[in-house]
Design a protein around this nucleic acid. Structure first.
Lengths: 329, 329
DNA sequence: CTGAAAGCGCTTACAG
DNA sequence: CTGAAAGCGCTTACAG
């Protein structure tokens, strides 16, 4: 079963080569093109992409490798990436690594076997370091996480600036003991930690932070102890939406009123941060732009492989809400 | 560039056929297998999946076609589906239709060109109706949406029961004028509408519902008028998390206290429904089980194509929260 | 513009 | 168990 290009050729009374050209960009006379199109319709022919990819040596496939599609940041980015890809006639293949370097290595192998056209990757620190040594057969654009310098194009948030905005915002409103919660698996968490420390020192304040697994549960556990401390922070800055959610849960559990007993600020302008009362002050990332920019960098790299490495650093937007209202006590 | 199976064969001193067998499940002696494995390592060989797929006539690819990956229900299901697929050595290719029948048709064609092994599909009503006529070359498992009978395996929520639980819950707590908000693009919205009407009649109450586009914005707009009506409902049941979010926004905007001025209940146990105050009463769907069951049905269908059509109807769980506390007035 | 022929990189009957 | 050969369904130089 399965009608192939030869069946179409026979039905149209032309050669398989002509069918191929009529379907692609090859030069064909209008008459033959019409014959072929009619034959395609009458036979119900559908090209076999595996054959096309093998022969043309072009998989037309973008790999998108992220920590977890359920992280809303990656959900949003993936939607943009897929729209861009389909519009360009390409497929995307998505992998969730759960921040596990072994799974990252596994999927990198898989991506090679797919003979990817290009990849968009949010690596863990461990893999980011190795990426320099490792030769991939396709261009890579890093998103969300990238080291200094680097051999790959990247589009990231200005983490230093963003967390600085958050700290400044809190200081302005009278908070001094500002604690930080940062993910320990990605460069992003560490960059935000660095930005936090720098900002605190700029204000002459004592940094006080914790690195932890980037999950709501981990944050909740850690904060149970931290918030019980008499020297507990007046405010918490959380470096992603999962940690932020854990922070909110912990505050509720401890019976702390926000912001009177504990101010809260974090990253990612999720729906719930607005719906909760009081609303949570967050840094909104330009997710759409991040996705589009990553695809643009990739396409430009494919067109001109000799381009110098480019790193796009985008600014977040501080959305101030009730969770960081001025300290009145 | 690119080392192929022939290069490995030469390095190992065996035939390409033997390399292929050693890498696959073919019968090979232990000695030759070891030679091949060493050669694979020394050459850095990675199989070309396009070639393998073409030759073996097995794409090893699952299509997952949903309305929008940003809908948390689909986000969660997609994660489960991908885990199952990768564990079985298969790839998944994801498409977002935005409930647009034209895009659904486009992606169905694409899936045929990919020579899918199988597909998991959440269709709109329009496409669901056509699916009966249309011959696909691969098995399809419907999720979230399915008609009565049907020629495809399916796993869906017991919508009738779930919405009945919600209505009963509200009635028990003293609400009578219970309005309904249902999506108009999917069978799910209509089934929940039907369940709502049936439940209201069972309690001798007057159904009062609206069908609308399944978006928070549409719900917000519609409710601006509805909630201004002096005969406005005492409670709103919303048929998915987007409509529910719009409902909450509208209530806030209108200055209505929940549940005193307006009780609210809906579908999908999103994080925010718990974090908001009061918490929102919702039907929790067994998303993990839905994803796993869909993959199981698909794999069993592939193994035994003659199996009778199976439709799995799973029950939701009613999570009662403050948004539907007993009516005190 | 068109066709005949070669070949992309594998797997799989077919012999042995 | 192993190898030589054919072929999956296309595209693309190569001639004309």
């Amino acid at each position: 079963m399965g009608v192939g290009i030869k069946d179409v050729a026979r039905a149209a009374g032309v050669s398989p080569a002509t069918v191929s050209r009529a379907l692609g960009k090859g030069p064909v006379s209008e008459e033959l093109r019409a014959l072929v199109e009619a034959a395609v319709r009458s036979t119900g022919y559908r090209p076999n992409l595996a054959a096309r990819r093998l022969r043309s040596q072009d998989s037309g496939t973008i790999g998108l490798v992220v920590a977890d599609i359920r992280n809303p940041f990656f959900t949003a980015v993936s939607r943009v990436v897929e729209d861009c890809a389909y519009r360009a006639g390409m497929r995307v293949i998505l992998c969730n690594t759960d921040e596990d370097p072994e799974r990252e290595a596994l999927y990198l192998r898989l991506m090679q076997e797919e003979r990817l056209t290009g990849m968009i990757f949010a690596p863990t620190r461990a893999t980011l370091d190795q990426l320099a040594h490792r030769a991939l057969d396709f261009p890579v654009v890093l998103i969300d996480r990238a080291g200094p310098g680097g051999q790959h194009d990247a589009v990231v948030l200005d983490n230093h600036e963003a967390v600085g905005d958050l700290v400044a915002h809190l200081v302005e409103r009278g908070y001094r003991r500002i604690g930080g919660l940062f993910g320990n698996a990605s460069t992003t968490g560490l960059q935000r930690r660095d930005g936090y420390v720098a900002a605190m020192q700029r204000f002459g304040l004592q940094p006080d932070f914790r690195l932890l697994a980037p999950s709501a549960e981990a944050a909740l556990q850690l904060l149970r102890a931290w918030l019980a401390d008499p020297q507990r922070p007046e405010a918490i800055v959380a470096s992603n939406s999962l940690l932020l959610m854990g922070t909110l849960r912990a505050a509720r559990e401890a019976g702390l009123a926000i912001p009177q007993d504990l101010a809260v600020a974090g990253f990612d302008n999720e729906n719930w941060t607005e719906l909760v009362e009081p609303g949570i002050t967050v840094i909104e990332q330009p997710v759409e732009e991040i996705g589009r920019a990553a695809m643009s960098l990739l396409f430009e790299r494919l067109k001109t492989p000799t381009l110098p490495v480019r790193k796009l650093v985008l600014s977040g937007r501080c959305v101030a809400r009730g969770s960081t209202a001025s300290r009145t006590s």
